[in-house]
């Protein structure tokens, strides 16, 4: 049972209030029509499953209804940080997905 900091409500809340929304920083291609089936398939279906730090998106569904990103260790479950959509903190995170 995780405890997650919502950057909008600005406090730690219980996991029950949130819904997981998959890997963070998956940007929608600007021009889907120009992509090959394989490239489009990468965007649609392929996700990382790292052991260690991972960036994932959560939805504060029972709270402020905001989406935000979380950097979480998939082994220890320690959450290194929560940050709003649009921010892409550099630094400790080595596994980070490139933004576009």
């Amino acid at each position: 049972m995780l405890q997650i900091y919502c950057p909008y409500c600005q406090e730690l809340r219980e996991e029950e209030e949130f819904s997981p929304s998959g890997e963070a920083h998956i940007a929608r291609p600007r021009d889907p029509e120009s992509l090959s089936d394989e490239q489009w398939g990468d965007y649609l279906f392929f996700r990382k499953n790292p052991r260690g730090l991972h960036r994932e998106m959560w939805h504060h569904s029972a709270g402020c209804r905001r989406y935000f990103n979380v950097e979480r260790d998939t082994v220890s479950y320690v959450i290194a940080r929560s940050y709003p959509i649009g921010e892409d903190p550099a630094g400790a995170m080595v596994e980070g997905h490139d933004h576009e």
Binding site: S19, S21, R28, H59, S61, R65, R66, Y67, I85, G86
Partner: peptide, 12 residues
């Protein structure tokens, strides 16, 4: 949730 997802993340 789906509408908010796109508004908040892709098309702010």
């Amino acid at each position: 949730g789906w509408l908010e997802l796109w508004r908040q993340t892709e098309w702010p």
